[in-house]
Amino acid sequence: MKIEKNILITLIFVIGFITIIPFIIIIGMKWQWTSFAYGSADGWLGFWGGYIGAIIGALAAGFIAYYVAHKQIHLQVDKEDLRARKFLGTQLRIDKFSEIYSVLSEMGRNFAESDMLIFTYHFKEPMELYVLRDKQREYQDKDLSSIRNINSLFPFVPDLKNDIDNMMEIYHERNRFIYKHYIHRKDPSKKVSDSIYEDYSRKSDELMIVLHVILTDISNKLSHEIDKLEKGIN
């Protein structure tokens, strides 16, 4: 606003200068102390016309050059500012996508360890139920902590909330299955049947597949943002 005000004042000054100078010249040529100058009035009018015209032309050229340079600088600043904002936005998304991918990968490891615990309990080593219960509770605490971290990142990936909600629905079904058929089964003295384990395994596989799809999507988004950063942000 300040620069535009200065341009307006300069323009008014130039217009006033152009308007007033001819009257000053006409009056000046009638002064007694200018009578020593040789030449006719028409000749002097022509001289002053060319002289003042050259000054006005120079001022106009300077004004135009200043205005064009100012506009170019302003446009360049806006362009660089926009580029900087895009760069920061891309960098922020890369950081958040990386964080989401890391948290989900950690959840995947917890899922796999939990599965291995059930597999070991079912097929290999005898294990007290309280050990199984405590281990499963430990994995669940880690998973819920991871989910709380991911919830804060939903604004950066609009479709992530629905994907996580679907995954957690399967996750809770899987956990209820573990508690019902393993930890809190009616007769702990009896071995869990292989068919029960197969049902659990299918539910666990479904959970891992959903998680893999989410991780793939986040990985693709992350790769896209990194490509933008490497190629330059337009």
Score class of each variant (00 low, 15 high):
residue 2 K to L: 15
residue 5 K to F: 03
residue 9 I to V: 06
residue 10 T to M: 12
residue 12 I to A: 04
residue 14 V to G: 03
residue 17 F to M: 08
residue 20 I to P: 06
residue 23 F to G: 06
residue 27 I to P: 08
residue 27 I to Q: 13
residue 27 I to C: 10
residue 29 M to P: 06
residue 30 K to H: 13
residue 35 S to H: 05
residue 40 S to G: 04
residue 42 D to Q: 12
residue 43 G to A: 12
residue 44 W to A: 01
residue 46 G to I: 15
residue 57 G to P: 04
residue 59 L to T: 08
residue 62 G to L: 10
residue 62 G to C: 07
residue 64 I to S: 06
residue 66 Y to H: 02
residue 70 H to I: 06
residue 72 Q to A: 03
residue 75 L to A: 07
residue 79 K to V: 11
residue 79 K to M: 13
residue 85 R to L: 15
residue 88 L to P: 04
residue 88 L to D: 09
residue 94 I to K: 00
residue 94 I to C: 01
residue 99 E to V: 08
residue 101 Y to V: 01
residue 102 S to Y: 06
residue 107 M to Y: 08
residue 108 G to A: 00
residue 109 R to E: 06
residue 111 F to D: 07
residue 111 F to R: 00
residue 112 A to S: 13
residue 113 E to P: 05
residue 116 M to P: 07
residue 116 M to Y: 13
residue 116 M to C: 12
residue 117 L to G: 00
residue 118 I to S: 03
residue 118 I to Q: 00
residue 120 T to G: 02
residue 122 H to T: 12
residue 122 H to R: 09
residue 129 L to D: 08
residue 130 Y to I: 10
residue 131 V to L: 07
residue 131 V to S: 09
residue 132 L to C: 00
residue 134 D to T: 04
residue 142 K to G: 09
residue 142 K to H: 10
residue 142 K to A: 12
residue 143 D to S: 10
residue 144 L to Y: 11
residue 147 I to K: 04
residue 149 N to K: 15
residue 149 N to H: 15
residue 149 N to W: 15
residue 155 P to M: 02
residue 156 F to R: 02
residue 156 F to M: 02
residue 158 P to F: 09
residue 160 L to W: 06
residue 161 K to N: 03
residue 165 D to Q: 10
residue 167 M to A: 14
residue 171 Y to L: 06
residue 176 R to Q: 15
residue 177 F to E: 05
residue 177 F to M: 07
residue 177 F to P: 04
residue 178 I to G: 01
residue 179 Y to V: 02
residue 180 K to N: 09
residue 182 Y to G: 01
residue 185 R to T: 01
residue 186 K to W: 15
residue 190 K to V: 11
residue 192 V to L: 01
residue 193 S to M: 06
residue 193 S to N: 04
residue 194 D to P: 01
residue 197 Y to S: 08
residue 198 E to H: 10
residue 201 S to R: 13
residue 201 S to H: 13
residue 201 S to G: 12
residue 204 S to C: 14
residue 206 E to L: 13
residue 206 E to K: 12
residue 208 M to H: 07
residue 208 M to T: 05
residue 209 I to K: 03
residue 211 L to A: 05
residue 214 I to W: 05
residue 217 D to G: 08
residue 218 I to N: 01
residue 223 S to M: 09
residue 224 H to V: 09
residue 225 E to A: 09
residue 227 D to M: 12
residue 227 D to E: 12
residue 229 L to A: 10
residue 230 E to A: 15
residue 231 K to W: 06
residue 233 I to S: 09
residue 234 N to I: 06
